[in-house]
């Protein structure tokens, strides 16, 4: 048992994590005819809390309660993993990525998220504005505009051989490359 927990504490390799994530697709379908998708939960929260008579938010969100329960589970899962199976070692980041990020002013590579950015102290600073507020707004707005995120399009959509999901996935990657290579250097300079 102790050995098992030791193994569980190590970071899990991609060939364990990827297939497990992929299995979520048939699991949700067979457990109750649910299509895998996470960003929909944001819409259901809007529909439940602030529908404001907007047609986009006036639907029977209660039918989609499972989606909210599912994301609550993800949050609890994050807590369990970090509390009981936490990796005692620092996170491993590719040496070349460390070099690139150091040039942008990120030097602490011990946590899963850079400590220079993701703390409450930064909330009312430029860092908070860019990394929490702007980042969140972009994600929330765009996932509905695109009709799904990495789970709904890249995993569920591609699993079902939907070509619009392939287009969306290519657009996700294009946006990510653009931000990382063209815009992030300017944003990092602005928030320092």
């Amino acid at each position: 048992m102790e050995q098992l927990i030791e193994i569980l504490k190590q970071p899990w390799p991609w060939y364990v994590a990827g297939p497990l994530i992929g299995l979520t697709v048939p699991l949700l379908l067979l457990l109750g005819n649910k299509s895998f998708g996470i960003s929909s939960s944001l819409r259901h929260i809007c529909a439940a809390c602030v529908p404001a008579r907007i047609p986009f938010f006036t639907y029977n969100w209660r039918k989609e309660t499972w989606n909210l329960v599912f994301v609550a589970g993800i949050l609890i899962g994050g807590f369990i993993a970090a509390t009981f199976f936490a990796n005692p070692e620092a996170v491993t980041v590719a040496a070349s990525t460390q070099e690139d990020l150091k040039a942008l002013g990120i030097t602490n590579f011990t946590q899963l998220l850079p400590e220079e950015i993701f703390t409450w102290d930064n909330l009312f600073t430029r860092k908070g504005l860019v990394f929490f507020v702007l980042g969140g707004l972009l994600i929330g707005f765009s996932t509905r505009y695109a009709g799904g995120c990495t789970s709904g399009h890249s995993i569920m959509g591609l699993s079902n051989l939907q070509w619009p999901s392939l287009i969306a996935t290519i657009a996700f990657m294009a946006g990510g490359f653009t931000m990382t290579h063209l815009l992030l250097p300017y944003l990092m300079a602005w928030v320092q």
């Binding site: 994600i139 996932t143 931000m179």
Partner: peptide, 12 residues
């Protein structure tokens, strides 16, 4: 939307 999502994904 997909492109905007990529921008947000790389920030957050």
């Amino acid at each position: 939307g997909g492109f905007i999502f990529g921008l947000g994904w790389a920030i957050t």
